[in-house]
Design a protein around this nucleic acid. Structure first.
Lengths: 213, 213
DNA sequence: CGGACACTTGAATAGGGTCAAATTCTGTGG
DNA sequence: CCACAGAATTTGACCCTATTCAAGTGTCCG
């Protein structure tokens, strides 16, 4: 018999609100499967999508008993909820979270440089690279062999992409169109994009100075 | 007799590099006193200051054995270095870090909305509010009584402010001049600013919809 | 006092935003 | 299978904010 799980499993469908900014909260969540986005709204309605969470990522942080941002699923998945009070009691749990939070903080740092310093085209290129398996995450293994081509499937609307990248829908659309015209991508479907040359796309992100090939 | 401290104290002067992006690292740091900024550089020299650390904040995160950003002190202070290996062994330590990281993550979220969605003026106003004691941090107690006036002392050059806010030096300077012309602030000295009406400045940050007074 | 550097100000420019219209996609029902 | 309505996306024209480039002014420190 296994020990009782220290957390409660929560299954969610795609496009479902997990919690809203201002909701009461006594738990922290770890994403097991699926994709979740965190966002905040300004009083006048401007939205910024703050994090796109991957497997292992933690969310629901707050120094207070109230959520400081909203969480919504992009695709169906699962997360585990840990009561904050349990967290304070279980060293093993705390350890586990500590290990992962480092990666996540680094990803936030990368996103800060994107929002603060990258051009629209660099943002879109960075975003596309994010969906190439093994690339575009924090510590993207730029040297790992990757196929020239990559078919990716965006799980977000143009509106969500824009709110994630700090742009408008129109700018996102224009950048994608320009990439298509240049032959860098094919837009097979609004949410199905083929990157013709992954290595060249990586150069457009502004992060990589040279192409290792 | 007290237990041996689990960390090594490091004292640093103002304007000193603590570590550079790419440096080898086996430790995590907690700021005890002073101000430290974390920044990243793009290959072409663009810089983004990612975090301005306050007492209690953690830095030196990385999933790898190499620092993912650079750390530089703004004023003299102290931090404690914990070896990652110790961290894995000491539950008490892990607990302590876990508690603080939540506040810090929330501050990063706030900064993401600043970089992604705020206007230049809102960014500068948010930045100024940051230096008003008890205000502008994460979970600024907007309702707490605060003096009408606040004299603040910036510890950063215009260049650093710009790189923190995702703007240029000129834009920062222009926003400050405009605030001065409007009578919202007095620039007693390039780094000594008097906010004439804290509550009104708070409205300019874009975060607060109404003034509670 | 003078030289280096930080900051401010001005004019011109461009990148991305706004507004509006056209196009494509999706889903529904006949 | 096709027609249609509503939504998402793309495209175009124009505008505005912040950037760029270029002086000018202020400040610090030897």
């Amino acid at each position: 018999m296994t020990r009782p799980s220290p957390g409660r499993e929560i299954h969610f469908a795609g496009r479902v609100i997990i919690f809203l900014e201002g909701d009461e909260s006594d738990s922290i969540y770890q994403l097991v499967d699926g994709i979740v986005m965190l966002y905040k709204l300004m009083p006048d309605g401007r939205r910024q999508i703050i994090e796109l969470l991957r497997t292992g990522d933690l969310f629901g942080f707050s120094p207070a008993a109230i959520h400081e941002c909203s969480a919504e699923s992009l695709v169906a998945g699962t997360c585990i909820a840990f009561k904050r009070s349990d967290l304070a009691r279980s060293p093993a749990l705390a350890q586990r979270l500590n290990e992962h939070i480092q990666t996540q903080m680094c990803a936030m740092h990368d996103h800060a440089i994107l929002l603060g310093r990258k051009t629209a085209m660099e943002r879109v290129a960075t975003f596309l690279m994010r969906w190439v398996p093994g690339r575009g995450g924090y510590q993207c293994l730029a040297h790992a062999p990757s196929p020239e081509c990559a078919e990716i499937r965006l799980k977000m609307t143009r509106h969500e992409i824009a709110d994630y990248l700090g742009l408008t829908i129109e700018t996102v659309s224009r950048c994608l169109s320009k990439l298509k015209r240049r032959g860098a991508i094919a837009i097979d479907h609004p949410d199905e994009i083929t990157i013709k040359d992954v290595c060249r796309m990586c150069l457009l992100t502004g992060t990589e100075a040279t192409c290792e090939r």
